[in-house]
Design a binder for these strands. Structure first.
Length: 337
DNA sequence: AAATACAGCAACCGCTGTTAG
DNA sequence: TCTAACAGCGGTTGCTGTATT
């Protein structure tokens, strides 16, 4: 059905709307209500096509439009919904009252997408970009500490860790010894016996399944973590393919995060590490943003770490330091497995 | 101060799904 | 059932303001 654009009709205006046009459209809709977009422009005295009027109304003039910067909760919700729904902007918008699909789409393309890419996360699949993951160089790096990698075993695709271990054992004797000498326990696989005393400092900071489930701010359903304020979509997600939100947004839980956060935050805040000498409890509140129920105001450029505000740039910087991988081009991950 | 590059966003384009005749 | 009109959606464009050189 070939249809020429309605605006091709001569005499119809295109481009930015003037205040006068906005006023005409708003007043007309206030009286007659939205709809009948084809006849609306003529009836409202506008030299616009109906489509243009509809877009102007739905994306800008509607009284329930919520303008301004996206809150952290909104951003978190967008990322999580996008990981499930993909580029279904209208579906995402329907779960964010006052936000339009166009606005969310723009925000995704200009902010979130770039940040995910910068953090090595594929914005389409929401998984680490293995094509950028240069594990061999990471492993050979003088500063590389295998225990760091092992400590995030449960946070990334286990295949990555298998690959890392394989490479480490074959190419880096130092790390190999470290691996053999390090008493590492996968926190997700811990049984009921108290093994935490053997866990290395960095590993003990990770939550157990029980701790995840007990967290006041997060719920684990089918392997998918959602904030309490997020609609449960009942989407079946394979554990194997899961990259949880804490890896895809700015509140990524990272290896040795407590040391990083402590060293950074303690300079100007009252941040205290959650794991004292004998305390293996995981304090989610100390690294996750303030929940929506919090009375503390949030805007899109800030998150809270135990009450201290962190800017986008600081988050970016922090994540960049802790979660940057590089992969040689052409590396096929499956070839290693 | 001027030129250029970049980021953000409103608006448009074109395709698809729905509905009425 | 078919067809055309309409409405909605996602991708893309282009304008504008800001930052950098």
């Amino acid at each position: 059905m070939g249809r020429s654009p309605c605006c091709d009709k001569t005499g119809l205006k295109k481009g930015p709307w003037t205040q006068e046009e906005d006023l005409k459209l708003t007043q007309f809709i206030q009286i007659h209500g939205p709809g009948n977009w084809r006849t609306l422009p003529e009836n409202a005295g506008l030299q616009r096509c109906g489509k243009s009027c509809r877009l102007r109304w739905t994306n800008y003039l509607r009284p329930d439009i919520r303008r301004g910067r996206f809150s952290f909760e909104e951003e978190e919700t967008i990322i999580q919904l996008h990981s499930v729904l993909g580029n279904k902007w209208s579906a995402i918008a329907s779960r964010l009252p006052g936000r339009t699909d166009n606005e969310i789409k723009n925000y995704w393309n200009t902010h979130i997408r770039k940040r995910l890419l910068k953090n090595g996360i594929d914005p389409v699949t929401h998984r680490p970009r293995l094509d950028l993951l240069d594990l061999s160089s990471v492993l050979k790096s003088a500063s590389f500490n295998l225990s760091n990698l092992l400590s995030i075993q449960t946070l990334v695709n286990p295949q990555v860790l298998r690959l890392a271990t394989l490479l480490a054992s074959s190419s880096n004797q130092e790390n190999k010894e470290l691996f053999l000498n390090t008493n590492v326990i996968n926190p997700m696989n811990q049984n009921s016996t108290d093994q935490t005393t053997n866990v290395t400092a960095s590993t003990s900071l990770l939550p157990t399944n029980q701790q995840w489930n007990q967290s006041p701010n997060m719920q684990v359903n089918n392997g998918q973590c959602f904030s309490n304020n997020l609609v449960n979509l009942n989407v079946q997600t394979s554990q194997e393919n899961l990259i949880p939100p804490y890896l895809i947004d700015d509140s990524i839980i990272l290896p040795k995060y407590s040391e990083q956060i402590t060293s950074q935050a303690s300079e100007n805040s009252s941040f205290q590490p959650s794991n004292s000498e004998n305390n293996t409890n995981f304090d989610m509140d100390s690294i996750f943003p303030t929940p929506i129920s919090s009375s503390t105001p949030l805007d899109s450029s800030s998150m809270f770490i135990n009450g201290s505000t962190t800017t986008d740039d600081e988050i970016q910087s922090y994540c960049g330091k802790n979660f940057s991988f590089e992969l040689p081009q052409g590396l096929e991950f499956d070839d290693f497995l």
